[in-house]
């Protein structure tokens, strides 16, 4: 077998052909390490890696690099998210080296939500490079041992490199090509945006399989359990690129408020069951937004426990 690219747990799980199960955790809006550790604890042993978000929705939080390092300290594996909104190529490169030095072995390359969505709307954005170029930058650092300026790196960082994909943004016909481009750029794995429109996702996966993309890259399907109807309405209205079918809203509306969380979890579990069987899907990325304590229950009921060790 080829040498691992980074040797991360996530890479090993996927390479061994196991159905991967990753989680997510947003760093605190402050330096509250204890609270962060509590959230981590819910995820321990439940997922193969934990995405540590990077000022998601452009709301400022503890740095994803620092929070990823804290996760390593807890004996868990981070998937360090990095957006191009807040860093130029110098900062990106040095953070990648720093990430490797701190024991981080997975990284997710993102453009980043526009700052107008966040809590520092007057900020200047960077976008020196975009997510496609970020994938290329970090994989060249790893595989060629070269910086973007072609200078040699003294001990290249080894990271398993992921990218995001939103099959529900427009134009739909182009989405699979953009995915192909991310794979060309060097993405080892993909985590999709939260999936709610299953019919559209099935079509998308058919296209990806037909184009041979799932042979070249691991695709993890994004799942977010809805806590209630209000959350569904909020996401549909305020989160960019969300496709929440009326049927799902109707389903949540159909049960009394106290039972909507359970209905949301049931929908997520049905999705996970289908993803396990779906051609080309290598795992699930569970984004239980500010609902980390529900992850053990969801993982248990989804039948993905215990997590395999490789």
């Amino acid at each position: 077998m080829d040498e691992y690219k980074s040797g991360s747990n996530l890479e090993k799980i996927l390479r061994a052909g196991h159905f991967a199960f990753t989680g997510e955790c947003g760093p605190p809006k402050g330096a509250n390490v204890e609270h962060l550790k509590e959230k981590f604890a819910h995820l321990k042993g439940m997922v193969d890696a934990v995405n540590i978000t990077d000022n998601q929705t452009a709301v400022v939080r503890m740095s994803s690099l620092a929070a990823s390092h804290l996760l390593v300290h807890e004996g868990m594996e981070p998937n360090f998210q990095m957006v191009c909104r807040d860093r130029n190529r110098l900062a990106i490169t040095s953070d990648i080296l720093g990430a490797h030095a701190l024991g981080i072995r997975n990284m997710l390359c993102l453009s980043g939500d526009h700052q107008s969505f966040g809590n520092h709307t007057q900020a200047k954005n960077v976008h020196d490079i975009d997510s496609m170029q970020l994938i290329r930058l970090v994989t060249n650092m790893r595989d060629k041992g070269r910086f973007m300026n072609d200078e040699e790196i003294d001990v290249p960082p080894r990271l398993f490199v992921g990218a995001a994909c939103n099959p529900f943004a427009d134009p739909f016909e182009y989405r699979v090509y953009r995915l192909a481009n991310k794979i060309t750029a060097g993405a080892d794995f993909i985590q999709t945006q939260c999936i709610f429109n299953m019919e559209k996702f099935r079509t998308f996966m058919h296209q990806a399989v037909d184009m041979g993309l799932t042979e070249k890259c691991y695709i993890l399907a994004g799942v977010t359990p809805m806590k209630n109807l209000g959350m569904a309405n909020f996401m549909a209205k305020f989160v960019p690129g969300m496709d929440i079918p009326d049927a799902l809203k109707k389903r949540l509306k159909g049960v009394e408020k106290a039972k909507q969380a359970e209905e949301g979890i049931r929908f997520a579990l049905e999705q996970i069951e289908e993803f396990k069987q779906m051609e080309g899907v290598a795992g699930v990325h569970l984004m239980a937004i500010e609902w980390e304590h529900k992850v053990p229950e969801i993982a248990e009921r989804a039948g993905v426990l215990p997590r395999p060790t490789v």
Partner: peptide, 12 residues
């Protein structure tokens, strides 16, 4: 975002 490889996931 001055992307050279768009459209981003927010295009609707």
């Amino acid at each position: 975002k001055s992307l050279l490889h768009g459209p981003c996931g927010g295009s609707s």
